[in-house]
């Protein structure tokens, strides 16, 4: 494609005798090539466990993260450096671009977690832990854990290392969501064993046949989240 258009440019040059420049498409995909260096081609994540997939995630969620990096509510020097001087409008366009990509997911990472740990993970996801005030992850992240548009991310298809790093970031205060920061409150209640169990289970799941986020919440949120708007957002 690129070769072809360069050929066209060359032809143009021969005919016009003007200054040669490589023909590069004036598209959002071209603008977002810089992201691929870490997030993989078209944002579908690389083998490296710390770079999350961004393709196909809900637009509102992606937008909030881009704003959070820009404003220093979520700390990652490289991400902040890249987005520091971009407008809300452009960040919104980036979020919508990546949200609109529907790409195949790689099979889950091979997993060595023992069954008891996976069992505990499944329990947290499906039921939570009422005794300790932990709501089921399902209640917010969707029945199939593929997220809920526009603001809640899916949790499948993410590497174990990335998931654990996010829980750590909320603990250490290097990641914040809009107040009330429901995830920070939930993470504060999880033990290191819970975190390990939940991340192990999540990283071991294949994507369901339809990997798209759900379009509405199953029921009103169990606790309110500042970053979630729309019906069912507050209880």
């Amino acid at each position: 494609m690129l070769r072809k258009s360069r050929f066209a440019a060359l032809l143009g040059l021969l005919m016009l005798g003007s200054v040669a420049t490589a023909a590069v498409p004036d598209t959002m995909a071209q603008r977002m090539l810089a992201c691929a260096a870490c997030h993989g081609a078209e944002g579908r994540a690389t083998g490296d466990g710390f770079y999350p997939r961004i393709a196909g995630k809900p637009a509102g969620y992606l937008y909030h993260q881009l704003i959070n990096f820009r404003e220093g509510r979520r700390l990652n020097a490289q991400m902040t450096y890249l987005l520091e001087r971009q407008s809300d409008d452009y960040l919104r366009e980036m979020a919508e671009y990546f949200a609109g990509l529907s790409l195949p997911y790689p099979p889950p990472q091979p997993n060595q977690a023992e069954p008891a740990r996976l069992q505990r993970g499944l329990q947290l996801v499906r039921q939570g832990d009422t005794a300790r005030g932990i709501p089921a992850c399902n209640d917010c992240h969707g029945e199939k854990m593929t997220g809920v548009t526009p603001d809640i991310p899916g949790l499948l298809g993410l590497p174990y290392d990335y998931l654990v790093a996010q829980f750590g970031a909320w603990r250490q205060g290097t990641r914040h969501g809009a107040a009330p920061d429901c995830m920070a409150a939930i993470v504060a209640k999880l033990t290191p064993e819970d975190i390990d169990a939940a991340a192990s289970w999540l990283a071991a799941q294949p994507m369901p046949a339809d990997p798209h986020p759900a379009t509405s919440l199953p029921k009103p949120l169990p606790v309110s989240c500042g970053s979630v708007t729309g019906p069912g957002a507050s209880r």
């Binding site: 977002m32 260096a37 971009q86 407008s87 366009e93």
Partner: peptide, 14 residues
Amino acid sequence: PGTAGNPRPFGMPP
């Protein structure tokens, strides 16, 4: 920088 005159800049990959 994203400015009014160049609101959607292209990026150089790291």
